[in-house]
Design a protein around this nucleic acid. Structure first.
Length: 560
RNA sequence: GCCCUUGUAGUUCAAUGGAUAGAACAGAGCUCUUCUAAGGCUUUGAUGUAGGUUCGAUUCCUGCCAGGGGCACCA
């Protein structure tokens, strides 16, 4: 990569000047007129060498100039002591050529070669609505998995279904009291019925305290393999999975594995044995919990006072299983909401104590809530917005422009709206914002892609010649070229920080540069000798944009 | 009470300790006989507050103010 060439150049200059090198940071200046890369090393080292920063920078530049790599056309000192690098036109031409050659492989790297990673995401709860709240984990987790896969990791995508827990006791009680499992099976909208029952349970339980105990009993029965309980549970799981499948299909999300929590039911005893062996847990108020040294975190419950298990223990069992199945070096990433931060800190700490984890192989990627003016949404109160309705509405809105691509565009809009921001922050949900088809949006990217494709079709019709790479004489690279080559490093950063939004914001910048390029004059023009190169550039743009959209899980329509 | 997290134009978001804090939407003004106007161009407008560290702070540290989340039998 070009970064390495620049770094080497700087290092060489520093060593001839006999300066102990500091950390070399290369960044892109915000103003593109300030060069393609900028280095602040002189300002950092100035004090150490007792020189003023500009003076030092000048010396470094003089050294670099003595042995200037062909990729660099100019190096200069600017501002308080920045060293700015201007890449040569030949470099950009070479990059474009590379993009056309590598096509959908452009941006792929081997950073993660030989490393395995499990990305756990989406993880909806059985018999609960798939709301817009689940969208975040689904979409962000999927993008992270795509990015890591593209970076050479062996990625296992796991949907950790919430198919176990006291909630099922509640559901069984509700079904038995106010409906029947047969009725639900016949229903046109079984999940909505189940949710309604769940909500009703909570309303009734406020008046009738006996219901909660009944629910606990039924969950215990379920854990003990009671036939009736198991049957109801099985049906609920099947109905839910069918519903989820529809959503995943529309979102274009796939999983490699979907071990529900129930799968770990029998594996928890082993974890308990490990805990006991190391004497990590103590009894308190009838329950059984792990206490942390110096109260680093609040104690974590593993068994309830009635002896039944709780999700913390299931999570430990899950990770123990993963380490056994995929090897102890596997990295586990949980894409789960912020509100579970403490839980994951506790789980990870416990896994360190248990020897399941070294502490670096367990990562909680957090995301904020979708927030509404009324406050945090809650399935319990029944005011969550169903994702299906949001998708339908988005698709409906997209039909105004083009019916054929409405599904891809509407869903692209929703996904991009989620992915474009740093995930840890809350999203204040507004229909206008989420369904926005203008500006910094998924449709803007898709539109730009379709437009580029249209130009390429036209170029073919007009029989524009292929570029003769040897004959290209460029004096000044376009802004589009100055952004295109950065894709691989953006992917690298997005992967390193588990942050798809870097790709999202990059793609917007890229598409803007292209649209500006488009606005500057004809691309397909037989009378223009530069036309072949402009067409090649358009193609390079379409390739990079498509690769980027793929990573975000957003479709790129050929026509719109 | 303790812990975590967030405060950037009217609004929604960017910004690897760097240069004149970028976009988009909304507002004002241009721009389709031309490969897609879901576009392009111009323009108005912002770092909650008080300190500290630093050559340099939206970014790091401390206090305060304001939002959000979590803290034992839900997941």
């Amino acid at each position: 990569m070009i970064r390495n060439i620049l770094e080497k150049s700087i290092k060489q200059a520093l060593s001839t000047l006999d300066i102990k090198e500091g950390k070399i940071i290369l960044e892109h200046p915000e103003e593109i007129t300030n060069g393609d890369y900028s280095c602040n090393i002189a300002m950092i080292l100035a004090k150490q060498v007792a020189k003023n920063p500009r003076e030092l920078a000048e010396k470094i530049v003089a050294e670099i100039n003595k042995n200037l790599p062909k990729e660099i056309s100019k190096v200069e000192v600017a501002g308080p002591g920045f060293i700015n690098f201007y890449l040569s036109p030949e470099f950009f031409v070479d990059e474009n050529r590379k993009i056309l050659k590598e096509e959908k492989e452009f941006g792929r790297s081997k950073i993660g070669k030989g490393k395995k990673v499990i990305v756990e995401y989406s993880s909806p709860n059985i018999a609960k609505p798939f709301t817009i709240g689940h969208l975040r984990s689904t979409v962000i987790g999927d993008a992270i998995a795509n990015i890591l896969d593209f970076s050479g990791y062996e990625v296992i995508r796991d949907n950790h279904l919430g198919d176990w827990g006291t909630q099922f006791g509640k559901l069984i009680v509700a079904i038995k009291n106010w409906s029947s499992i047969e009725k639900i099976q016949k229903s046109a909208e079984p999940i909505k019925d189940l949710v309604a029952l769940y909500v009703k349970f909570h309303d009734e339980a406020e008046k009738d305290l006996a219901l909660d105990n009944e629910a606990r009993d039924w969950f215990t029965k379920l854990e003990n393999g009671d036939k009736e309980a198991k049957n109801i549970w099985n049906i609920c799981v099947k109905l839910s999975l069918k519903e989820f499948e529809k959503i995943y299909e529309r979102l274009g999300v796939k999983f490699d594995t979907a071990y529900g929590e129930s799968f770990f039911e029998k594996k928890m005893q082993e974890v308990l044995k490990d805990i006991n062996k190391l004497k990590l847990a103590k009894e308190s108020e009838g329950a059984y919990l792990i206490f942390f040294k110096d109260d680093k975190y609040p104690p974590m419950m593993v068994l309830k006072k009635d002896g039944s298990t709780i999700y913390a223990l299931r999570d430990l069992a899950t990770d123990k299983f993963r380490k056994e199945k995929y090897g102890k070096d596997v990295v586990i990433i949980n894409e789960v909401g912020m509100e579970q931060s403490l839980h994951f800190q506790q789980v990870i700490e416990a896994e360190k104590l248990l020897g399941y984890s070294n502490g670096h192989d367990r990562i909680h990627v957090k995301h904020g809530f979708y927030r509404f003016p009324e406050g945090k949404m809650s399935t319990r109160k029944g005011n969550g917005i169903w994702l299906e309705e949001v998708l339908d509405e988005a698709v409906e809105k997209a039909k105004v422009f083009d019916k054929d691509t409405a599904e891809a565009v509407g869903i692209g809009a929703i996904k991009f709206n989620d992915l474009k921001r740093e995930s840890s922050k809350d999203i204040i949900f507004s229909w206008d914002e989420a369904l926005n088809l203008k500006g910094d949006s998924g449709p803007y990217l898709q539109y730009s892609y379709a437009r580029a494709k249209s130009i390429l079709r036209k170029a073919k019709e007009e029989k524009i010649k292929k570029v003769d790479w040897k004959k290209i004489q460029e004096n000044e690279a376009t802004n589009l070229e100055k952004i295109l080559y950065r894709f691989p490093e953006v992917v690298e950063r997005a992967g390193a920080e588990y942050s798809p939004h870097y790709i999202a914001t990059y793609l917007i910048e890229l598409a803007s540069a292209f649209n500006n390029f488009y606005g500057q004059g004809k691309i397909v023009d037989k009378t223009d000798s530069n036309s072949p190169y402009k067409v090649a550039l358009t193609e390079a743009f379409s390739i990079v944009l498509k690769n980027g959209l793929n990573l975000l899980g957003i479709q790129a329509p050929e026509k719109m």
